[in-house]
Amino acid sequence: KFADLFEKMVPMLVQQSLNIASSRKADVVNRLVGSLREATNLSALEDLSGDSVPQSILEKSHAVIQQGGLNSIEQLIKDLPELLQRNREILDESLKILNDEETTDNELRAKFNQRWNRTPSGDLYKPLRAEGGNFRNVLDKAVQADQVVKERFNTHCEMIALLCKPENELCSAIPSANPAKTLQGSEVVNVLKAQLVHLDEIKRDREVLEGEIKSVTFDMMSKFLTALAQDGAINEEALSTAELDTRYGTYTQRVQQNLRSQEEILAQVQTSHQEFAALKQSNNEANHRDDVLKKLASAHDSYIEISSNLKEGTKFYNDLTEILLKFQNKCSDIVFARKTEREELLKELQQS
């Protein structure tokens, strides 16, 4: 197992030349590899995906869900007709008891003529009828308001329902604007895809190239030793550059070729990408996505509006009911008084 300790010992000049040669080599390798890396960065295209839910829509969806979603306004809308009907019935009943009493009064006046000398019910009830008329107008207006709310709800209920879905369902329900997906099969996309595949190949070539460049090894020692023996001096630069040329010449050409073909492909990608972007603008799929997003946004706004309309409407009907109940009491009170008076008058007439 003899190991010659002095095997690696060389003359100082040779050692210095070796050092310089290795730094030259490192320079060459770094330059080549650097340009390869740079080219790869250049070729990275932006991610073209376009199918996540925009943040603003997500916020609107949470807001709608927080306020009770579709169910809460659906229930209120269902209640409106009943509230309207209840108010109508109270008003109709009030006016009916006025009418009945007035009819009776008119009949008795017709029967007893001037002996039926009390104030006609018609005159007495005039202010009440006017008030009743006002109530009728107000109710008619409320019916129109109900209609508006209902229409507004019908227009947006589908989109509001969508807003109430969990995020993943919402995302899948929104048409994707992912160009690669939506423009599947279109000429431009195929060309673009082919170019990107080609670009990938060039990238892969570069990786292989880089590996090969790094793996090049050669030994200058023997050359330097022979030069030193023959001439007594070492022309390191000439020897190193000559050796580097022979070793890396082909690689340099291949790197140049790789960079050149990448430039060409990138230029092509640029143009087809512009075509693609223009196509995307005109593409109804993408527009369709915009449509849906716009509708979702306006559905949120209408939801807020419908909620406040319904709150207002419900309050209106409940307040009106209280007023109508008071009105009904007034009517029944006066009619009761009139009836009592009528009976007394009848009694007197009979006695006379």
């Binding site: 107000v138 207006k141 308001a145 709310v149 309309n309 209106f316 307040d319 007023i323």
Partner: peptide, 16 residues
């Protein structure tokens, strides 16, 4: 607001 206001009803009654 969408629904008629009940205030004018009350005012109307007070005036009468």
């Amino acid at each position: 607001s969408l629904y008629p206001s009940l205030e004018d009803l009350k005012v109307d009654k007070v005036m009468r």
